[in-house]
């Protein structure tokens, strides 16, 4: 596998905990006085898949977007390998942090009119000056890595296809490959399977967990499907009303806890 330029050394967290990501007292209010996230405390281990489950509108997306600051947290700390992401002020520091964090989206968010290869190379934009991106003069190692990854996600023949010519499952594979192109230290996946059919959903989750596992990249995934979460995650975080109500192994997810997360009763029977 080609070696990527600009990949930071896997720094060890300065604190004693083994977590890749430690969230402390994270709050987010879109409108003052209406908190969406109410003091979230969470540790994400340095490997494996962590699934965040919970009803719609409970702040799962907000939580994940606070991590790479697509959404500005109102208060709290997000410690990522020893750096507080919530405290980054300059846009240069923020961009340097973002390129260490890969992201996969519910609606894939590929640049539709670019080719698959160009979409993958978007993952390298944090390392390549704009004029090179404009002339498509990406470093050879990046291009080689992109081809390698396309093979790994099963789209080896699709490099020159335009993204808008792909099916949903294929697009999400490109989305995952784009995130891995960043050589990230963590991957955030925001409902990566919600727009896909059940079979493709399983394939996508398999791919995410396999590629993350091979590269030792921890994956945080927001997911609606509890069965998928149990099947692929080593750790489940249950959220309700903007708070974490469960954090632990999938086996611990009893009906009682599911009731606490989603409320109600009849859907469990």
């Amino acid at each position: 596998m080609p070696v990527l330029v600009g990949q930071p050394p896997p720094a060890k967290s300065a604190s004693a905990d083994d977590g890749a990501l430690v969230i402390r007292k994270l709050c987010k209010e879109y409108q003052p006085g209406v908190p969406v996230l109410k003091s979230i405390d969470l540790e994400v281990p340095g490997h494996g898949v962590t699934a965040v489950i919970g009803p719609s509108g409970t702040g799962k997306s907000t939580l994940i977007r606070c991590i790479n600051r697509l959404v500005e947290p109102t208060s709290g700390q997000i410690l990522f390998r020893g750096t507080d992401l919530a405290a980054l002020r300059s846009s240069r520091e923020l961009r340097a942090a973002r390129r260490r964090i890969g992201m996969v989206f519910q609606e894939y968010n590929l640049v539709e009119r670019l080719t698959v290869m160009e979409n993958l190379l978007c993952g390298r934009l944090g390392y390549v000056p704009p004029w090179r991106a404009w002339l498509r003069l990406f470093p050879e190692a990046d291009v080689a890595h992109a081809f390698h990854l396309l093979d790994a996600v099963g789209l080896g023949d699709f490099a020159t296809r335009r993204a808008d010519a792909l099916s949903g499952g294929q697009r999400q594979r490109v989305g995952i490959a784009r995130a891995i192109m960043q050589a990230p230290e963590i991957i955030l996946a925001d409902e990566p399977t919600s727009s896909l059919d059940p079979k493709t959903s399983v394939e996508i989750m398999e791919l995410l967990s396999r590629l993350g596992g091979e590269r030792n990249i921890p994956v945080i995934v927001n997911i609606h499907n509890v069965e998928l979460a149990k099947r692929f995650a080593q750790r489940i975080v249950g959220m309700a009303g903007g708070e974490v109500v469960y954090a632990g192994p999938p086996e611990g997810l009893s009906d009682d806890i599911l009731r606490r997360i989603y409320g109600g009763q009849s859907w469990l029977e």
């Binding site: 790479n68 697509l70 390129r99 890969g102 992201m103 993952g123 390298r124 934009l125 704009p130 989305g175």
Partner: peptide
């Protein structure tokens, strides 16, 4: 959404 995805990679404004 497409812009958000590009921004999330650590791309600058010109990128």
């Amino acid at each position: 959404k497409q812009v958000e995805a590009v921004r999330a990679t650590g791309a600058g404004f010109t990128h």
